[in-house]
Design a protein around this nucleic acid. Structure first.
Lengths: 123, 123
DNA sequence: TATGGTACTATAAAAAATGTAAGTAATGTC
DNA sequence: GACATTACTTACATTTTTTATAGTACCATA
């Protein structure tokens, strides 16, 4: 998947932080350029690979695949393959995945508010 | 600060995402290995550089400085320097910084729950 | 036989984030 | 004058993440 060196200091630090801070643990799972937005789209229901791709205009297929695989490995979403040609694969949030909703919504609201606050600062 | 190339695809993608998805915008601000945990500690009140460092056992001074500067630039916290020797610098969340509390707490709870869920899977 | 659609994979390169190690400034105390 | 304290800064190395580009498999239809 992603190539993490289990001997690196960075790896050790992430582990240690995740062990004692559940919010850092969560951030590791939800980290990555597109993970949050993918989940955000999936909050409305299952989507196919190609549909997700359309919603994320500039993502490469490789990145989409990587992020989906990571989220799948963390049991945030589940992947269903239909034995068809051309292939059809659907992605859907799991129960724990859907529980991200209040957090994602919270971040959305906070982000909007932060934008407004920043607009009033003149730095 | 951090060296972002404004000509890179990555920069363009982040901008575009942040523009249309406030949750991605928020994630950019709160991103970084230690940012969330720093904010988490600061939810309990102002702390000095050295105190923060003690709370984050493996962080290097360079990383701590970088993350604090980034958070300051985003107006998540404010930095107060006291004209003393040896120096004394205090960091405190701003109003919009304190508004991260429900999000951080939400992530904390979700993280704990996710850990429990994962413990029951046998992969 | 050629073409098209879907969901990928492989490989390389570029960019970004993080870590390492050393040094700095100012001043009070020994 | 040497040393300790605090909050950094700088130069450089390494690791991790993201992007670029080009494939692949499958079968149905033209």
């Amino acid at each position: 998947m992603s190539q993490i060196k289990e001997t690196s200091t960075n790896y050790a630090n992430k582990q240690a932080l995740a062990d004692e801070c559940a919010e850092a643990y969560a951030a590791n799972i939800m980290g990555g350029q597109w993970a949050l937005v993918i989940c955000s789209w999936l909050l409305n229901g299952k989507l196919r690979f190609g549909e997700l791709k359309k919603h994320l205009p500039n993502i490469t297929e490789r990145m989409l695949t990587l992020q989906l695989r990571k989220l799948e490995a963390s049991h945030i979403l589940k992947r269903t393959v239909y034995a068809q040609v051309p292939p059809r694969v659907e992605y859907e949030l799991t129960a724990i995945g859907y529980e991200l909703r209040p957090i994602i919504k919270g971040m959305e609201e906070w982000g909007e508010k932060h934008k407004r606050v920043m607009a009033t600062q003149k730095d």
